[in-house]
Design a protein around this nucleic acid. Structure first.
Lengths: 213, 213
DNA sequence: CAAAATCAGTACCGTACGGTACGGTTCTTG
DNA sequence: CAAGAACCGTACCGTACGGTACTGATTTTG
């Protein structure tokens, strides 16, 4: 009852198909799922509906392809190999927090998440799983490794790195993600992602920094 | 360009109309927005489509009425008046955290949030604003008052109570709300809301407890 | 009790969308 | 250059939904 051979991984899309998916994504960002009709995609991408169905099967396959393509663009941050200084750790975390805030609040991310949530409301969590695995999962895994390494080097308290990452995530985003998904407008001060991220990381370090002695 | 006289506040619904809205909500919870057609509501509620349009104007008005009705059921927790002990504070916060987790993960809450997010994806944030104001806002305001009072009584560091509440909120929910909206299944351990809430509040207290001396 | 309002049930209309079929054009390939 | 595949553009079909109109029954009201 799970994803068996839905072959989401291959993504053997031709350049033409990728261009079509990018067009479709733009439509999605601009007008929401409602605007993402097969006719509109065909018109915007300059291809025929018949080709869409030939390439992606049906509308659901098309939506999945859009998400898969975009998720494939997610670049996990470089893993630090070897020892690093405490300053490097905090700098990396600052970078992570600011980047996370930027990504989460981007039009593309919001549109994709809304699309997946809409599908989930119809009882199908395929897109949601895809987003969680390829999007949050990939970034999270890398940062979790960073935290684990920081624990090994004595900068952070020994504890479950996954839980620590969850705490960091919560401190950075708070209820911002859902508010944005709901269409709420951020106040000016809330849009200073660098400052907000720094504050969150500082809080995180208060909780997880190894006792200095 | 905002909500002017959309008269969301009155909610002068007759008992009959409330019953219809409850029926509609049940449909929404069971089958998502897709299942929430006017015909389906009329059939489930045993009323005519004409009555639906007479009472609620159009489909959007019906959706708004559903959300408004449910939001009106939100009971803000009692405000503590007068001084209270530190134990009372932590007990209240534990209660708040567990309750928040339960509410956020409930089928009804998820369905309403998904509905509002779907509307937001079409560029209309009416339902989102309604949810934020009547749902999160009401609970949040009360707990923020509690935090402010705790600061006044010296249990918590003096700081902006609103920001402190945001931190608490983030620590309690982490990325759980969005994961649930995306249709992700919680692991067994994650469903122990009492334990998760306690952990979050303990973390919160580490950050905000007034230095004991 | 009679006039008036309300409402359930149903039929109906226009539109929009997912999906398919087809003709004509361009591009590939031998 | 010729045969064939790929594909664009469009037309088409069936269905489903939002919204309206009508009718007969029930309730309300004076």
């Amino acid at each position: 009852m799970s994803d068996q051979d839905t072959n989401l991984t291959p993504e053997a899309f031709t350049d033409r198909q990728k261009a079509v998916l990018d067009c479709a994504l733009q439509l999605l960002v601009e007008g929401g799922e409602k605007a993402l009709t097969t006719a509109a995609i065909a018109r915007a991408a300059g291809c025929s509906k018949e080709s869409l169905y030939k390439w992606f099967g049906d509308r659901d396959g098309l939506l999945t392809a859009i998400v898969a393509r975009q998720a494939s663009k997610v670049r996990a941050p470089e893993a630090l190999n070897g020892p690093f200084s405490r300053e490097t750790l905090t700098r990396e975390l600052y970078q992570f927090a600011e980047n996370l805030l930027q990504v989460i609040s981007s039009d593309v991310s919001l549109a994709l998440n809304r699309l997946a949530i809409g599908q989930a409301s119809r009882g199908d969590a395929t897109l949601g799983q895809l987003l969680l695995k390829r999007g949050r999962g990939r970034i999270g895994a890398q940062t979790t490794l960073l935290l684990k390494e920081a624990m090994a080097q004595g900068y952070l308290k020994q504890s479950d790195a996954g839980s620590a990452y969850d705490v960091l995530y919560g401190l950075v985003l708070k209820d911002l993600h859902v508010r944005l998904l709901l269409g709420d407008q951020l106040k000016k001060a809330e849009q200073d992602y660098a400052a907000a991220g720094k504050q969150a990381v500082d809080d995180f370090m208060k909780l997880y920094a190894a006792s200095t002695e």
